[in-house]
Design a protein around this nucleic acid. Sequence first.
DNA 1: GCAAAATAATACATCAAGGTAGTATTTATG
DNA 2: CATAAATACTACCTTGATGTATTATTTTGC
Lengths: 136, 136
Amino acid sequence: MNFNKTTTYAFKVLILMSHNDQLDYTSTYLSEKLNIQMQYLRRLLTDLSKAGFIQSKRGKNGGFVFAKSIKNIFLSDIIDAVEGLEKFNSCMLENHDCNKEGKCSFHDAFGEIKNKMTDALKTTTLFDLKEKSIIT
Amino acid sequence: MNFNKTTTYAFKVLILMSHNDQLDYTSTYLSEKLNIQMQYLRRLLTDLSKAGFIQSKRGKNGGFVFAKSIKNIFLSDIIDAVEGLEKFNSCMLENHDCNKEGKCSFHDAFGEIKNKMTDALKTTTLFDLKEKSIIT
DNA sequence: GCAAAATAATACATCAAGGTAGTATTTATG
DNA sequence: CATAAATACTACCTTGATGTATTATTTTGC
Ligand code: SF4
Ligand code: SF4
């Protein structure tokens, strides 16, 4: 019940950026502030650009800004872009032949909980997280 | 929100074995029935023995049987033995400096859901899963 | 007591995620 | 237009999870 590292990085970056969602953030700044290695972060930022969350400005005074309103970026979108959302809905036993409700107690026992989790991810935006976040 | 492969194997093995919890199951049988590679499964079975869930009988007519009642084997025990239970309770953002409630919206948004998940794992036994499981 | 059937142990192979380095490209500004 | 400051790209390294192969050990039953 965790995201992979890259997804976690993505969250941290975007949450930090959402503190001032009009600002340009350089990869150097983000890297130092969040303790994420430069090169890896750069790739991630490029990916997040290609996914449409942020946009890059190359050259001097460049950096990254949101490409759209943080009210329109759902947590599920971020997960989906980085590690894919499939596994959050798929069988916890990786029994790919089966996907039927009511066939296995696992499904019954955790299906509802998983759905709530997924719902939360699909309805929570970066804006929603903004105020209370301690991640600086 | 998934277990790693080894944990999934462990679940499948133990769930299958719990269908008839007095029987000896050979690694060959389990391997073929569940499509798990022999050598890897063997190691897992040895680990599950050492963890006290099952016991091994070496030599001809050997195999593995439960070492204790399946009413006393909680899903959380299995996870804990194989991949550790820590991450099911730790910060989803891997912000290891912090572990305070109310400090970050993430915590508020998903804390309750995670607790329910953990509770379910800690109160559900192999016996509870027995009847309805389709995993043969 | 020997052969067959089982587990145990050990060492090595493979693969994907994550991490690192070096070079190329773009752009603002003096 | 040259330089500095930024991102983009590409190739390689490291590590941990998973997979495979080989050999050793134990036990049963003829
Ligand atoms: S019924 Fe069980 S095996 Fe089938 S998809 Fe649901 S959890 Fe997986
Ligand atoms: S408050 Fe946020 S950062 Fe801190 S432990 Fe909870 S989820 Fe993690």
